[in-house]
Structure formats: C-alpha cells, structure tokens
Write a protein that binds this DNA or RNA. Structure first.
Length: 470
DNA sequence: ATGTTC
C-alpha cells in the first residue's frame, strides 16, 4: 500500500498498527517510536492505532499517534494525550497585502511581546488574562464562550474553534491546587519550545473553492498562534500519571511501560482525569483567544485595522482525547500530535465549512512553509478523521543545540541562511537552534505524503514573514 | 511541552 507501513500483530499486541508516510519518511522513523506504538497496541480496549508522518518518540505514545479506544470497555491514558493538553494552533486571515505589511513587521512583533508573555515560566501581561478565584474557574470550566459577553471573543470566534472552545466534562474540583496556582497567572501567554506567533504570507492557493471560504488570497497576510495549556495542563498530566501509576494494578491493568499508565474510562480516576483534562483544554482555547484579542489590538494600533478584520479561520487542538463516533461505535480518540480533520458534511464542521470539510492547520518549522488543509472521507475511514500536526523532529533539542557535545549541532551560519528575509524574535532570549528548520523534517514532504494518498486536500501554503518564538 | 531532575 502506497505511503503506508503496517506493524504486524505480535506478542501482546491486540491489533496491527498503520503508519502513514512516504518511503523515505517511513525508513527514517526511530525504532523507539515504533516500539512505543507496539506497546500502546497492548492496552485494554484499544481498537485502532495509527501514526502520522510527523511521528517521533514521545512519552508513552509517540507524537503523531492516534489511538482509538472503546468508550465502554477501554482505558484512558494521559501519556497518549500528551503533557501539553490541548496544545494547538489557530490561523487568522488578515486582509492586507504582504508588501503593505513588511515595513511594520518589527513594530508588530515588539507590540505583541509587550502584551503576550513568552518563555519558560512566563506570566500574564494581558490585563484580561489576569484572573483568579471564581473567574478562573468560570473560564476553565466554560471555555471561550465565557469571553463573549465582555467582547474578548466574538460569536464568530466561538463558531470557528474546535468544540466551540468548550470541552465537557470540565470540573475544577478534579484539578489539584498546585495546577490551579500555576495556571491562574498564565492565561494569555505563549510559553516556550516550539510555540510561536507567526505572521505569514499566503504563498499559494491550491484550490479557490477551499481557500475562498477561509478568506485566504494569494499575496495576502495570515497569522498563526501555536501554544497550549502551559503549566496548568502540564501539572494536570503529571498529577494523573502519578495517580494512575498507583491505581492501575487495582484494575488489573499492566501496560508494558508505566509511561502508558492507564485506568478504565469508567473508573473514578478515569472520569476525574477526563474532567481535569477538559479544564486544561478550555484553558488552552481561552489562552489562544486572549492572545488573539491582544494581537487584534496591536494590529489596530500599528496598521489601523479594525479588530473584526482579523478573522479566525479555525482553531484546532492536537493533544487531546475526545469521544467520537466512528463506524457506528462510540470511541475515545486519543490524538497526540495529531489534528482532527473531519470531512465535508460532518455535523461537527462549522456551517461555513460544511461543504468543503474542516480546516486543519499544519504549521511547518520556523522558516519553512505551513499548510491549511481539509479533511477527507479517506482520513475518516483510515485515520479516525485525523491528519498530521506539523513536520516532526529529526533532531532532539539537545542535538540541535549541540548540548553536552551531542552530534548534529546546527551552525549559526546555516541557521541564518535558512531564516534569510524573515524577521524573528525570541521571547526566551536564548538561541533559537532548537527550533531551527534543520531540526525538522521537510514540511512539504510530510504534508504531501498524506495528500498523495487522499488523506488531506491542500487549501493553501503559507510562508513566514515574521516569527516570535516562545 | 514544563517554575526544562519531586
């Protein structure tokens, strides 16, 4: 089968696993990532497991993994959701030509850094992100719709966010005090690592029927925000990994590694995790919304653009577990570094996109193209309505930066060459080599390896003009 | 990803 590899059923595996990718991509996948897939295939109630071409080794399930579990008899596993719960991306169309915006890129980036905290441990700078107590509970339990009454989100923003920016169940009573303390000062912050805010140019529209409803026009500007649930989601993940490690033996669950600690979905611990995970998911959507609100104000000040002109195309998460129906069965779909991309006609797709399919946003690495694609029936059948979430690393952070003498260090000159013509700033104030384009697979090849077999249809390719790295 | 080794 073209662009697919099967990991055959062996040992305790309950099923075979499909990995998508071109031949060169499949050949280069780390053995450890494949072993992580085989391990996950042993978990109770697992009824489907696939991996995307941006697969690489993670904690528990590899990044790029999609694990479907029977909703009645299956387990839930924090390691199959990811540490950064509802890490995700939103894309925004900006009705300005790229030539028009170029002289203002530096001013826009520095304007954004003044209101959006960046770097490890960054704290809220946005006035509207500074919430505590009851207000914090309201936001993480209610999500983006809670921002509408004060005008921090529009009904249109809500409509164009996955799950309308509000996942249930979400009850803060299932979140530790420590997680709430870490999270309450971090709404409206970018964080670090591969998180970024990028101003882009629409380099190519592949299909006007798809790009039209998204407001994407060749030569015009587009904006991307990539971040997650910060210390809040991380603490929730760590808390429940620990809880489940201790509880799972009571349920006679013995995964091949504790990194895949799991409990039954229908256990008190499983239900509590899903409710806490819901809070983290809502936190992340609120986080991206507050950042967009602040960015709209910066664009208004610098370019005189009314806030309503920056239209949210879509907001997708790529680290989450959600109940969905596939093939007549109710399943808990764990997507870890994988993006939901439902096809045309699916009721969860906003009305304006119902005829074309849900936009999925696939960022490249810093300096390389990003894509907006739509899901297909093929992706629904073969991958539980999922596509890749990015390019996927080929080099660890430590390798890229040459830490502890590790091989593979990218030279400063090589990095500068790849970033030619792009304005970039780092919120962390450190070197940017860990996120250099050379540390990632080629985003074009990754997306094409799915497009070539009909799992996605490309709407547009976007290239960076200015990047704020977290 | 992450107050980056509770």
């Amino acid at each position: 089968m073209k662009n697919r590899m099967l990991l055959s059923k062996q040992g305790e595996m309950r099923l075979e696993v499909t990995v998508f990718g071109s031949r060169p991509i499949l050949d280069a996948i780390e053995d450890e990532a494949l072993q992580q897939l085989r391990n996950a295939a042993c978990l109770p109630g697992v009824c489907g497991l696939v991996a995307m071409p941006d697969i690489h080794t993670g904690y528990g399930l590899p990044i790029g993994g999609v694990m479907a579990v029977d909703a009645e008899n299956g387990i839930v596993s924090p390691g199959a959701v990811g540490v950064d719960i509802n890490c995700g991306v939103r894309a925004v169309s900006v009705p300005v030509g790229h030539r028009e915006i170029r002289p203002h890129l530096k001013e826009l980036l520095s304007g954004i850094t003044a209101v959006v905290g960046t770097g490890v441990g960054s704290k809220t700078r946005s006035q509207i992100g500074k919430v505590t107590g009851h207000d914090f509970r309201r936001l993480v339990e209610g999500g983006v719709p809670e921002l509408v009454p004060q005008g921090y989100a529009t009904p249109d923003d809500v409509e164009c966010t996955e799950e309308h920016g509000h996942l249930t169940p979400a009850n803060l009573d299932h979140v530790s005090q420590r997680a709430a303390e870490r999270g309450s000062g971090q709404i409206g912050t970018l964080g670090s690592g591969n998180h970024f805010i990028e101003i882009q140019q629409v380099a190519q529209v592949y299909d006007a029927k798809l790009a039209g409803p998204m407001g994407l026009v060749e030569g015009q500007v587009c904006l991307m925000i990539h971040c997650g649930s910060r210390g809040f989601g991380e603490q929730i993940c760590q808390d429940y990994l620990r809880t489940m490690e201790h509880a799972m033996a009571r349920y006679d669950i013995h995964p091949p590694t504790k990194h895949l600690a799991s409990v039954p979905i229908n256990s008190p611990e499983g239900q509590a995790y899903l409710s806490a995970m819901g809070c983290a998911a809502n936190f992340a959507w609120v986080n991206r919304q507050v950042i967009l609100y602040e960015i709209r104000k910066v664009f208004q000040r610098v370019l005189g653009l009314a806030p309503g002109k920056l239209r949210l195309i879509y907001d997708v998460c790529h680290n989450i577990a959600k109940f969905e129906e596939h093939g007549g069965r109710r399943l808990l779909i764990h997507r870890k570094g994988a993006t939901r991309a439902f096809p045309a006609g699916h009721p969860a797709v906003p009305e304006r996109y119902r005829g074309i399919g849900q936009p999925a946003i696939i960022p490249g690495s810093m300096g390389t193209p990003s894509f907006i694609v739509v899901g297909t029936d093929q992706a629904m059948t073969e991958a539980y309505g999922s596509v890749n979430h990015g390019s996927g690393r080929v080099m660890s952070r430590a390798q890229a930066m040459g830490k502890r003498g590790r091989a593979g260090k990218i030279s400063d000159q090589e990095f500068r060459e790849s970033m030619k013509g792009i304005v970039y700033m780092s919120g962390s104030g450190e070197n940017l080599l860990d996120e250099a384009p050379q540390a990632y697979k080629d985003s074009v090849e990754v997306v094409d390896s799915l497009a070539d077999i009909g799992l996605v249809v490309k709407a547009a390719r976007l290239v960076p003009l200015a990047v704020l790295k977290g």
